[in-house]
Design a protein around this nucleic acid. Structure first.
Lengths: 194, 194
DNA sequence: ATATTTTATGACATTCATGACGTTTTGAGG
DNA sequence: CCTCAAAACGTCATGAATGTCATAAAATAT
């Protein structure tokens, strides 16, 4: 597969991403993607065999990028609160770019494949909990945070984020609502200076 | 429409509910429902014109029943904590009856209809927040609870419940995980007797 | 018992997605 | 300029879902 071919594959993934954002997963057809890419039916099949295959590659690309973005923005002298705030801000950005979210496509896909209990979603959720738990732990150690049950708090935060995500896709949500909720979370942790 | 017809409609709704629990919304066809009901193609169209129509009637029936169950179980001398616990227990029951949940069907449907910002989902969520906020308020008044921001806490709880719901459908969830999270919520409210 | 209305059936025409296939275009190397 | 393989194209046979309709069966009234 030549250089040009790689570029085209890239191009198809970008266009397909838009389609999945718009329509979720189940109702996306190869035709939809063909039309979004303005290529021919046969042309698409040269690169991908099914919508499932395409979604999985889109998700993979996303995951790689996310990792990059997050790790690259943490500097040595960030405090735990800084990092947690950064983390929540990133989540907020994602939540508010309603059109830019694959949330529903992902849920549709993993609902179909609910059989495997050790799926990607689960792993991401668990690793999210661990990261937050660590951050809270660091915050407690440095005297920034107070928290009796870091693990509970961490999963609480992740569940709230899931709730916000799905709500933003199904019932619309204002920036204010997201802010309120994230603020509530931070207030619960940070030690008041009174 | 005669008596028999009403019964049959009821029967179809029950069978259709099973189908939506199993497959969500988008991928359910009239054929699926026909087969679940063991009736003919034409027979189904006598009662319902589309899967959408059927889902909406199923949801309506569910909502009516839920109202009944909840209001009937609150007695005069329940404390705020009692009622909140009852509320969370009901939610937990729902969460764990994985096979018995229309969560994904509902999300799929309202993702398609996300245009109307005042949809049923939103109303239910808001009313859930209000109920919990009231309960927390009552708990504070009676000295059972401590909470600086009842509204924040109430929506926090609702978001967590949404998160638990969607996770239970897409990544599987153990009773232990649900318990941990609900316990964490209650611990955050109840005043320690130390 | 018979007539009439209600309920049920399954075949049919139609629409739509699929994925394979044969043909045409493109562009790099000789 | 020519050749050839990779890339792109568009058509086609197939299968599945839809909604309608003429007809049959069942229930109810007369």
């Amino acid at each position: 597969m030549g250089e040009k071919s790689v570029q085209k594959k890239q191009y198809i993934l970008e266009k397909a991403r838009d389609v999945f954002m718009e329509k979720g997963f189940k109702s996306v057809t190869m035709k939809d993607i063909v039309e979004a890419c303005e290529i021919s039916r046969g042309g698409l099949y040269l690169y991908f065999g099914s919508t499932e295959e395409i979604l999985l590659e889109v998700l993979k690309a996303d995951a790689d990028e996310d990792d990059d973005v997050f790790t690259n923005r943490i500097t040595e002298d960030d405090t735990a609160a800084d990092i947690l705030t950064l983390f929540l801000k990133e989540q907020k950005k994602e939540l508010l770019r309603k059109k830019n979210s694959l949330t529903v496509a992902i849920y549709e896909y993993f609902f179909i494949h609910k059989a495997d209990k050790n799926n990607m979603l689960r792993k991401q959720f668990d690793s999210g909990v661990k990261v937050i738990e660590k951050l809270i732990g660091a915050g407690i150690a440095s005297g920034e945070f107070y928290c009796e049950n870091p693990k509970g708090a961490a999963s609480n935060i992740m569940y709230v984020l899931e709730g916000l995500k799905i709500n933003s896709q199904t019932m619309g949500i204002t920036e204010e609502m997201v802010d309120e909720q994230l603020l509530y979370i931070m207030e619960g942790l940070i030690i008041d200076i009174e």
